[in-house]
Design a protein around this nucleic acid. Structure first.
Lengths: 180, 180, 180, 180
DNA sequence: TATGAATGAGTTTTCATTCAT
DNA sequence: CATGAATGAAAACTCATTCAT
């Protein structure tokens, strides 16, 4: 399925066939291969943003806004599952390499989270989702950070640790421990 | 610079030139283009993993382990900045599209975090890093989730909200609010 | 404008749009793209030929016939300027290359003609038109010649020199030196 | 043979095969298909120009210069026959149409020239070459003229008639009637 | 071992032509 | 008759990989 291929894995001929049209037809609607992805992503992003803006326009509590945005995001993803598979879909060659490397760590992270939960130190949750979240934080942070030479490693590590361990809210216990 | 190009953007000829060898020499050491990235990533991943294992072998507190792992990760990234730029480097065509879409949201997230911090609801931190962390969590979680059809959107949204807002630890106030 | 594009530069869609009809309609009247040019050229050629035949049917003096034919040709061209632009119009890619190469020589030829006129060796005339004529003779002659292997270069050069310098008529001075 | 195909008729794959190399090799030396023709033409044009400059640098008589240039041109063409076949080679589709149209007139022109020669009005020469010359003059002149709106048809017709019938030189009889 | 010129399979893109409406 | 969206064969171009030196 096209959706599972990602940008580089998807050939224009495949995209066209998948859509049930000829290659010529593809170029009737998009000037280049890049353009269709760009449009796909931009249209979706702008739709998502407008949904988020609507969703969060009623309240002003930042924590609440975050929660509702996250909810909106995943509802949107549920409705556009195919799109997300395209956009984050694994490209035959490279992403597999990354995936494998990630898995090397995910297992350990899950294990640590399980132990933390069992010990009552971590709040209850879905260990694998949290492990994915940890990986996502680190990847995104590092990708951002390598373009920002001025921040010391210890600073970004601290920021990420605080974020991941304590969360953003100051008195979380008072608000949203869904597990108690 | 090669490092800024990412897997698809980097031609074998560039990689070889960057390394100061001929393309033929490249193929003397790596069977395919994929292999060099695979090796790059795997060697680094295994080195990182072994550093992490060493770092965390002494203690058993899961929160502490997480913290130390995160620290190790960013120290490693600092020492292998080029590698990370290669691996997460933006490929000319596609990643830019993604980058632009992300930026659409990052600004809003930063704004919300700033307001939350100002209101004393969010603990103090680096708003942009946290925003990147939020985006990273969501992207990684959604990429993982689209391959796991059985989990309802509301469940994953809840998990991610809890993680991001409250953090993993149960009594964070008691442990690590760096701002108090 | 279509007329300026030449055969390869003109897309059928353009030709149809230019004509104010749909592409489908185009194919109602012409079986192929080539056919429309063929028809265009053939209809025009046959019309031109019939005009020439009429024009020259009255007299029998070959020099006079030549003169009248040339006149008819350019009058026809004046009335079918668009057609001539289509037929000899410069195709985006290749003809420009030729054009540029020609210009390399045209300037020199003009210069030589000017000097010849100033010295009273050449009869008066429009230097650029004559230079174009010179180029036209050479191109056409060479294009014809490369398909006729049996003629030595010196022979064709002699023929062309005689033609260009002395003209076709035996006693031109007695007939048509417009400048005296 | 490639040389007989002309620009549009020649596919890059053919050019490469003809040259005994792979298509990739072609692109190793020329960035685009257009570029190879451009280079072909420009290199040849500049070589031809330099030959012409050398040839004509000794004398100053314009008529002599013309004659020597024409000679140089055809000698050059003889040595680069293949190149000229490429450059003026007939493209399967369009040039044939033109060729056919031209032939419609060439026969008549030849006939007229023959009659003029027989009648002693035209100097002796090769009727077909002269007919080609006539056609070349007219095509080139008209192609030039359609881009120069300000010149009346009668003017250009006069210029061309004078050129073709009387030649450029003022007293041709005194100089170069090769037939007497 | 080291090289980089040569390769051609694999892609993107074009556009004359068709055909359902 | 008229249309233009759809088509896909054919063409230009890319780049990982090979191999003679």
């Amino acid at each position: 399925m096209l959706a599972a291929r990602g940008y580089h894995g998807a050939k224009v001929a495949d995209i066209a066939r998948e859509a049930g049209v000829g290659v010529g037809t593809f170029y009737l609607y998009y000037p280049t291969k890049e353009a269709v992805f760009l449009e796909l992503v931009e249209v979706a992003a702008s739709e998502l943003k407008s949904q988020m803006d609507t969703t969060t326009s009623s309240g002003t509590d930042p924590a609440d806004i975050s929660r509702r945005r996250i909810e909106t995001f995943f509802n949107f993803a549920a409705e556009h599952r195919d799109l997300f598979r395209i956009v984050f879909g694994h490209d035959a060659s490279f992403n597999d390499v990354l995936r494998r490397a990630q898995n090397l760590f995910v297992a350990d992270i899950i294990e640590n989270i399980r132990r933390g939960m069992a010990a009552g130190i971590f709040r209850d949750g879905h260990p694998e989702i949290w492990a994915q979240a940890m990986v996502g934080i680190c990847i995104q942070a590092v990708a951002w950070w390598v373009e920002h030479d001025d921040i010391p490693a210890s600073d970004i590590a601290d920021q990420i640790s605080t974020f991941a361990l304590d969360g953003m809210t100051k008195n979380p216990g008072a608000q949203s421990d869904h597990t108690e």
